[in-house]
Amino acid sequence: MKSVINIMLMLFCITAFSQEQKVEYTKVDNNLIKATYYFADNSDVVEREGFFNKDEKLHGMWVSYDVEGNKTSIAFYNDGKKDGIWSYFKEGKVNLVTYNNNKIVNVEEKIVAVN
């Protein structure tokens, strides 16, 4: 009986974690490929999107969303390295983290007022 329960538990775990994430790739030009990732449990809702360069490294702007389609972060990469100002959105606040060559240079928190 114990082994049957263990087998059922193992099969449940394998099934629960086996959902594949839908990904679409679109060639923008000879140097960039746009990637769009969708939530695994809802293949119509975009989770994040951004670009890869010809060397398959993250490059340019990447945007992440929650399941309702709200932006949760905007990030920038230069040839696979974090670069520029990253914005994280949460509950009326925006955290701004500035990167230079993968290193944090500055961190700020701003309160967003919406009328």
Rank of each mutant, 00 (worst) to 15 (best):
D83G: 06
N102I: 06
V114Y: 01
T36H: 03
N106E: 12
G60P: 00
E47H: 08
Y65W: 01
L11A: 09
N100D: 12
V94K: 10
I74N: 01
N42F: 05
Y38V: 02
V46E: 00
E20D: 15
V23F: 06
V63W: 00
N31K: 10
Y37T: 04
N102R: 02
N42C: 05
A75I: 10
V45D: 01
D41A: 09
Y88C: 09
N95H: 10
F76P: 02
E24M: 12
D44G: 05
S3Q: 14
V67E: 13
V28A: 08
S87E: 14
K2M: 14
V45G: 03
V112I: 15
E68R: 11
K22R: 12
E56A: 13
A35R: 07
F12S: 10
V63K: 02
D83W: 04
V67Y: 08
N31G: 06
V67G: 08
N31C: 08
T36M: 07
K103G: 11
V112N: 06
N100Q: 12
K93P: 11
I5E: 09
V4E: 13
V94D: 07
M8G: 15
V28W: 00
N101V: 09
I14W: 01
N70G: 08
G60Q: 00
N95Y: 10
N53L: 04
N42H: 03
D41Q: 09
K2H: 13
K34R: 07
F39D: 00
K90T: 13
I74S: 03
F39I: 04
I104P: 01
M10C: 15
D66Y: 05
V46G: 00
E47K: 12
F17M: 14
K81F: 08
Y99D: 02
V63F: 01
G92A: 07
Y77I: 03
N100S: 14
F89A: 08
N100V: 13
L96N: 11
M10D: 11
L11F: 13
L11I: 12
N70Q: 11
F89G: 07
S3T: 14
V114R: 02
S73W: 00
D66P: 05
E108R: 00
N115Y: 14
F17N: 13
F52L: 07
V107I: 12
N6W: 07
E91W: 06
V46R: 00
N30Y: 07
A40I: 04
V97R: 01
D79S: 15
K27P: 10
S87W: 06
I5Y: 09
K81H: 06
S64M: 04
V63E: 00
K34W: 01
A75E: 14
G69K: 03
Y88K: 06
V97Q: 01
N70T: 11
L58D: 00
K93M: 14
K22F: 09
D79Q: 13
V105N: 07
E91I: 10
M10G: 11
